[in-house]
């Protein structure tokens, strides 16, 4: 049960890894993405992306600025304008 997760900014590919769950700060509310999530495209507001490597693990947070997220059968792709820190 792994979700293929990618975080990309215009400057570089920040992350590309298999994780358990990612919580995305969507513009209409946060949502968590697990493996097998229905295909979805959402814009994002500035906020924190929370990455859960395994079930129940301490989440790793990455602050991002704007952009959008796409979930398809291949996994989750976050296209962020900028990654802070």
């Amino acid at each position: 049960m792994a979700l293929q997760f990618e975080l990309v900014t215009p400057e570089k590919l920040v992350r590309s890894e298999a994780v358990h769950m990612v919580v995305v700060p969507g513009s209409e509310g946060e949502f968590g993405v697990l493996e097998g999530h229905t295909p979805l495209m959402s814009t994002m507001r500035n906020g924190l992306v929370m990455i859960y490597k395994t079930d129940g693990a301490q989440p790793e947070t990455i602050a991002i600025e704007g952009g959008f997220a796409e979930v398809n059968e291949r996994g989750l792709t976050i296209l962020a304008e900028r990654v802070i820190g």
Binding site: S27, E28, P39, L40, M41, T43, F68, N72, E81
Partner: peptide, 27 residues
């Protein structure tokens, strides 16, 4: 991709596209 028939959009297609277009120019 041909298999995205059941894609959900948040907010909706038009709004996402509106936001995407200036970004596309920038890129």
């Amino acid at each position: 991709p041909a298999t995205n028939a059941a894609m959900e959009y948040e907010p909706d297609e038009e709004e996402i596209l509106t936001e995407l277009l200036p970004r596309n120019v920038t890129i």
